[in-house]
Nucleic acid binder design. Sequence first.
DNA 1: AAGTGGTCTAGACCACGTA
DNA 2: ACGTGGTCTAGACCACTTG
Lengths: 240, 240
Amino acid sequence: MLSTGKDSISLYMQIRNLLAARIGRGDWSPGDVIPSEIQLAQELGVSQGTVRKAITELVEKNVLTRKQGRGTFVSAHDQDRALFHFFHISADNGQKVLPQSSVLRCRRKTASRAEASKLHLEHGTRIISIERIRRFADQPTILENIVLPAELFAGLDGESELPNTLYELYQRKYGITIHSASERLKAASATDREAQLLNVARGTPLLQIERIALTLENTPVELRISRCNTARHYYENTIF
Amino acid sequence: MLSTGKDSISLYMQIRNLLAARIGRGDWSPGDVIPSEIQLAQELGVSQGTVRKAITELVEKNVLTRKQGRGTFVSAHDQDRALFHFFHISADNGQKVLPQSSVLRCRRKTASRAEASKLHLEHGTRIISIERIRRFADQPTILENIVLPAELFAGLDGESELPNTLYELYQRKYGITIHSASERLKAASATDREAQLLNVARGTPLLQIERIALTLENTPVELRISRCNTARHYYENTIF
DNA sequence: AAGTGGTCTAGACCACGTA
DNA sequence: ACGTGGTCTAGACCACTTG
């Protein structure tokens, strides 16, 4: 089972891959305990330290979770992670939930100079422009303006209803995986229209988030400007 | 030197901190080789494996770099990193420079409930409170309120002049390495005093950044609330 | 050949959670 | 009391780089 030849990869890597494969196959499901380090060591004929190193790498990749005194578990939070990875707004009590979204406008137009520049498009390229409002517990809190190259997202403006989590749609229908994003934040005053939509006084300070979302190849494919009422919410960022 | 008592942190963590402190103090400079794992083990009276685990963590944090057959080196990109890693404000043209700082106030007081809670301190603990203003090209742009536990930073309020980059001071004089931080951003209105200091109209929207800075052990040691005029600057964040 | 980091072992004891 | 992960040791051998 485990190879020990000269040009083979190290033992702990083989074990790491073996464990990952078992999890992928579903031998162990999210939430399950896996056998203890000592049991695995005996089963595989290696020392505990070697199993330990293999498990450590899977813990660092968030595939497994250790709980001292209890055991090692298959992580359950791999899907939630995808949902919240690009969403950094939390309520003041620290809770993080996705807001509901309603589309206000969805139309095709020609990219402005700024939009074309930020999405690396030729001047005059057609884009899809979406405006939507997002609510936490029925309280309108965020206004979003989303700009997409019409060519890449052909037909999206005809969709009868857009899902709340757009990046899943990009992935599923257009084969575009958002992999990273760069955001620029400023404080700004609510315009009359924004004040009305967000149910605040004109001039109320809003947090403006300008995001450029990139694919795996670092191609910019979405420009999104959000303006948020931060009276009861905040933008969260952790620096490591 | 190394403590072995019941409630002390583990050996390898002490060694990790010791190595980090030596690097921070400049005992070893970026690009230098540090002593071999075996030499360090002998010097510190522990086994190679323990030194190895300490070094591994610093490698994962990009402080050290291993080169098989050659040695372990202090990473070269650590100074720039230290300078800008925790500073996310850029000018609208994309340029990132450190602002100049002037201290407005520096005094000792008792922690408020909120301050004590955020720094994990007992109610009534003494703190050092620093207020400073930061200028880009002589334009006042950021007001900072910094709160530190007085016990950890004994004598800091007596310093005749505080450096622009405080985290270097924490490291050099107090052996405290800021390793990560969690930030909460909101939009807020300038108070009268803020408006006067920042040379803007009362009520101008400001970007408020509340940061809790953590050591290697994730102990919170600094609370910093910055209020920024984002007329010509923005807060930058990249999501990977 | 000598010295470095990289892997691996067999065993020990500690800290934690559960029964 | 028992089993789990967490730390630590003392020693071994391998893979790589340099004199």
